[in-house]
Design a protein around this nucleic acid. Structure first.
Lengths: 338, 338
DNA sequence: TTTATTTACGAAAACGTTGTAGTTGAGAAA
DNA sequence: TTTCTCAACTACAACGTTTTCGTAAATAAA
């Protein structure tokens, strides 16, 4: 434990605790020579103010929470990096919480954050979240909330997102233009608005090019990799075998590769694949994977920036700002026209 | 801010603050009916104890720090997941700090952690760290430190590591047995003990199979991807072109793939590649990459477990425990014998 | 009956910082 | 001289818990 405190500094300097405190915050009430004496001794004794005492007194912790479904995923990892970068610049600390795509964990985390441990929360919903009351509770405690990527439509809060509808449309269009006639959409929990929007984009893409919309070609995947694998395999073994796949999540594209490998289906000859993804190795896959890459790092930075703006200037009450950062299509071999 | 506190509960119940506090911690000093009354009201009013007041009083924050070089790397991401899992089980909170492989940032972070903000630290050194005084300072403040993966030999602290020497040996052996006669080693900062051990394993592997050790075949890479790319390319363009590459870090293997692609070198026919890696897509790369995979998730869990053991039972002073978790060789196409 | 022990609670002092409300002494204005 | 102002500092309360030390009443032991 750090044992040098204001009292000790004060004693050593023959000053009062309050004078030392103020000197350290460079208050105008303290004379320059005194400040210098205080600074010098503080440095010499390696004084570090106790953050908990300060937080208790000021009702501010200079700490934020990042709540995400998973971290072993380049998108979220990069987002964290963006958030951490901005946070450290601003002198904030970052607590991390993983929901593992379990709404129960998300709720427990949200409940624990009501204690005032953090000044604000940056969150990306987990796939199974339907009811968002636990997040409303947070807001009612005056703890600002900023969503990124997996936002909630039901809650008024700043949101950092990508152009999901447009991206879904572009992905579908890209597959159709590459010659696909039966485009499947692999998605996660439809309770997520991003999934919904990507699905809408997919449907609009089909409609735009006069393709029929077949609900059997939309596979709702979950967080169990085994189950996902089986569902995808069944899709390919059914009489409705797709010749194009739009994976809304990176891990599903990976499963498609595995399934195709097992079934002896060639990509892109038999099946073309495109996926939302931030895989660094997309270009090295066999075949290289056409992706729609989200600006994960920038999204993290943006979310953090918005949150800190709220935290620092509370007098400006902006109930909702939405930032839309565009995803980028990277065409690679997996969607080459045969 | 959370505004319901002990005082309010006490008032409502006609009890003293101390009684309410004790009742909530289920103290034997409080009668069962009183406890029940307190529990009920606390639940009803959604009382959440102020963690900062508690931390201030108890000199314990139930918070740990995880300091790592990067997060956009499956190894570290999985380690975080392991740490977070154990932490939440134990009721701890996890602060995350990224050094971005900059020793200056590592030092700044270590300094800021001296404030007593955290009860303990789990750390993986950044590549450029030579002097570790900043970490000794932490220990002197009685903040337990646990290393994982990139440990420091100079500091007495628990360490969770993999069998780096053996793995380096196995990787080299594997390449030689696959027919390589000029095995290169791509490594990062030699100030890191893991790099040193892997290098030793590499050298011992060469020696064991009577291969000459050529310092020109050992490339010391840094954190600048561009520079790494160029150095690797130069290696392949030199008259000492290797026919086998042992990459000590995943990102360097990726660069090797890129370089080979640019230079028209075939893997594994012209060059065989093996790498330390936790890439989920290793098996889908073109060609699939032979890896030495570290049990990242388990390493995270283990590091956290050790740290919490120290934090909970301080009376048992175990100056140093080392846990060695074995890495696993996964043979794939990139090292197939021609 | 008196004395000791136990049970169930309360008062108050911490923890280290910050904010409010003084206080002091020196110089300026009256 | 007295009063006023102002710069530079101090005293003290507050933030919300936890913990130490009491204490009153009830019960047991003498």
């Amino acid at each position: 434990m750090n044992s040098v405190n204001l009292k000790q500094l004060a004693q050593e300097l023959n000053l009062s605790v309050s004078t030392v405190s103020r000197a350290l915050r460079d208050s105008w009430e303290i004379s320059t020579p005194t400040k210098q004496r205080v600074f010098d001794l503080a440095k010499k004794m390696n004084f570090q103010p106790n953050p908990y005492a300060s937080s208790l007194r000021k009702h501010r912790s200079r700490t934020i929470a990042v709540v995400i479904p998973e971290v072993a995923n380049n998108f979220f990892a990069l987002a964290i990096k963006g958030i951490e970068t901005v946070a450290r610049e601003k002198g904030y600390h970052v607590l991390i919480y993983l929901t593992n795509e379990e709404v129960a964990e998300e709720m427990a985390i949200a409940a624990s954050l009501q204690s005032g441990r953090v000044d604000g929360v940056i969150l990306s919903l987990c796939g199974s979240t339907q009811d968002t009351r636990h997040l409303l509770d947070l807001q009612q405690r005056n703890i600002p909330l900023v969503f990124f990527d997996r936002v909630s439509d039901g809650i008024t809060a700043p949101k950092v997102m990508t152009n999901d509808h447009e991206s879904g449309f572009i992905a579908t269009e890209h597959l159709i233009k590459a010659g696909c006639r039966r485009v499947a959409h692999l998605t996660i929990s439809m309770s997520l608005s991003i999934s919904h929007k990507r699905q809408q984009g997919y449907e609009d893409g089909l409609r735009r090019y006069d393709q029929p919309w077949d609900p059997d070609l939309v596979i709702h995947c979950g967080s169990d990799e085994e189950v996902n694998y089986r569902m995808i395999k069944e899709l390919f073994l059914s009489d409705k075998r797709p010749d194009g796949v739009f994976a809304s999540v990176e891990k599903l594209a990976v499963q498609v590769y595995h399934v195709c490998r097992e079934l002896g289906l060639r990509i892109p000859e038999d099946v073309k694949v495109i996926s939302f993804s931030n895989l660094v190795t997309a270009s090295l896959l066999s075949p290289s994977l056409t992706t729609i890459a989200q600006p994960a790092y920038d999204m993290g930075k943006e979310a953090a920036t918005i949150l800190f703006r709220r935290l620092e200037k509370k007098y400006i009450v902006v109930p909702e700002d939405r930032v839309m950062l565009p995803a980028k299509l990277e065409v690679r071999a997996s969607t080459m026209s045969s």
